[in-house]
Structures are given as structure tokens and as C-alpha cells.
Lab assay of single mutants.
Amino acid sequence: MLEGKVKWFNSEKGFGFIEVEGQDDVFVHFSAIQGEGFKTLEEGQAVSAEIVEGNRGPQAANVTKEA
């Protein structure tokens, strides 16, 4: 698991990027966000996630919002 913060997230398109210190930004799709209801993230929000290899490079999986 790694910790980072949301760089930006487009709720209409359902994707965005997470900033991780010392690494390239990581793509995040709404389907990777854990929880019930409408899955979205806010800019600057702290999150933790796993990194997996997607079709277009590294992407976030099992994204959870930090308190």
C-alpha cells in the first residue's frame, strides 16, 4: 500500500490522478475506489492505494479515503 493525495479527479468522466511523493502520478479510475454509493475523490484528499500494472501503465487499485 502507498499513501498519496488526489491531484485531480473528474467525477463526470470517472477518473483522475493521485500524487505520490517520489514517484510519477498514478492513474485512478472510479471502479478502484472502495466504498458504497457514488464513487468520487476530492482534489487534495489523502488516500491509500495499491499500484497494479494496467493496460496503459501503473494504476491505482483498492483506493481508500483516509480520515
Rank of each mutant, 00 (worst) to 15 (best):
E3T: 15
A46N: 11
P58N: 08
E36R: 10
F15H: 05
F17K: 04
D25K: 06
T40Q: 07
E42Y: 15
I18E: 00
E12G: 10
E19S: 14
T40C: 13
E21F: 12
N55M: 13
G16K: 01
A67E: 11
F30I: 06
E19W: 11
G16N: 01
H29K: 04
Q34S: 11
F9C: 04
M1W: 13
E19M: 13
E3M: 15
I18A: 02
T64G: 06
F15G: 00
G14L: 03
V26R: 01
K5G: 01
G22A: 05
I51V: 10
F27L: 03
G57A: 06
S11M: 10
V28E: 03
F30P: 01
G35T: 09
F15A: 00
F9S: 00
E3D: 10
F27A: 00
K7T: 05
H29F: 10
T40K: 07
S48C: 14
V47P: 02
P58A: 08
R56E: 06
G22L: 04
I18M: 04
I33E: 04
W8V: 00
K13T: 06
G57H: 05
V47T: 01
I33R: 00
F38C: 10
A60E: 02
F38A: 06
I18N: 00
N62W: 12
N62Q: 09
R56Q: 09
V47Q: 01
K39I: 06
F38Y: 11
A32E: 07
K39L: 10
I51R: 08
A61V: 13
E53R: 13
R56M: 09
F30H: 07
G54S: 10
Q23I: 11
E66H: 15
V28A: 02
A32W: 07
F15W: 14
F15P: 01
M1A: 10
K39Q: 09
E50K: 12
M1S: 10
I51H: 03
V28S: 02
E42D: 09
D25H: 07
A32G: 09
G14F: 04
E21H: 11
L2C: 10
W8P: 01
T64I: 15
E3Y: 15
E43T: 15
E53L: 14
M1E: 07
E19H: 11
K5C: 13
K7Y: 05
A46Y: 14
K13Y: 08
S48D: 04
E42F: 14
V26L: 13
A49E: 01
D25Q: 06
F27I: 01
S48K: 15
V26Y: 04
N62M: 11
E66F: 14
G54A: 06
F38E: 06
T40Y: 11
I33V: 08
V52C: 13
A46S: 11
V20S: 06
A61I: 14
K5T: 10
H29E: 04
G44P: 02
D24F: 11
E12D: 10
N10P: 00
K5Q: 08
A61Y: 10
E21D: 11
V47S: 02
M1P: 11
N55K: 15
Q23M: 14
Q34P: 06
Q23D: 06
G35K: 05
E36P: 11
G4T: 02
G37D: 05
G4F: 07
K7G: 02
K13N: 05
R56D: 06
G54V: 05
N62C: 12
H29C: 09
G37Q: 04
E21N: 10
I51Q: 04
F15N: 02
F30E: 02
A46T: 12
N62Y: 11
K5R: 13
V63I: 07
D24M: 12
D25E: 05
A67R: 11
V28I: 08
E66N: 14
F15D: 01
Q34L: 14
S31Y: 07
W8Q: 00
P58I: 11
F17E: 00
G4D: 00
K5P: 02
G22M: 06
E42W: 13
H29I: 06
N10V: 05
G57N: 04
S11R: 15
E36S: 13
G57K: 05
G35R: 00
S48F: 14
T40D: 05
V47C: 05
A60V: 06
D24K: 14
Q34I: 14
R56N: 09
F9V: 00
A49T: 11
N62P: 02
Q34E: 10
G37C: 10
E36Q: 11
L2W: 11
F9T: 00
H29L: 06
E43W: 13
A60M: 04
V26W: 04
E12L: 14
G14S: 03
E50G: 08
A61G: 09
F9Y: 09
I18G: 00
G35L: 07
N10L: 07
G4M: 06
A67M: 12
E50V: 14
K5H: 11
Q45P: 00
D25I: 08
D24I: 12
Q45W: 10
Q23P: 04
F17L: 05
E12I: 14
Q59K: 08
I33M: 04
V47I: 09
K65C: 10
I33K: 01
V47L: 03
W8G: 01
E43G: 12
E53K: 13
T40S: 10
V6P: 00
A49Y: 15
G54F: 08
A67W: 12
F9W: 15
V26P: 01
Q45G: 06
E43L: 13
K65T: 11
P58D: 04
F15Q: 01
E66C: 15
Q34T: 11
E3C: 15
I51A: 03
A60T: 03
G4E: 00
V47Y: 03
Q34M: 12
R56K: 10
G14I: 03
V52N: 05
F27H: 02
S31D: 04
N55I: 14
T64Y: 13
G4L: 06
E21I: 11
S31L: 08
Q45Y: 06
F17M: 08
G14M: 03
E43P: 15
S31A: 06
V26C: 07
V26S: 01
A61L: 11
S31I: 04
Q45I: 09
K13P: 00
E53W: 15
F38K: 05
T40V: 08
E53C: 15
Q34V: 14
G4V: 04
G54N: 06
V52A: 08
V20G: 02
K65H: 08
F30G: 01
G14D: 00
V52M: 09
E42M: 13
E19G: 09
V52H: 09
A32M: 07
N62S: 10
G22W: 05
F9L: 00
A67I: 12
Q23H: 14
G35A: 09
L2H: 10
E42H: 14
G16Q: 00
G22Y: 06
F30W: 15
G57P: 04
V63K: 01
E3I: 15
T40I: 09
R56H: 10
A46C: 15
V52Y: 10
G57I: 04
E36A: 12
F15M: 05
E42N: 10
E43N: 12
A32P: 02
G57L: 04
W8L: 00
F9P: 00
E19N: 08
L2Q: 08
E19V: 11
S11T: 11
F15C: 05
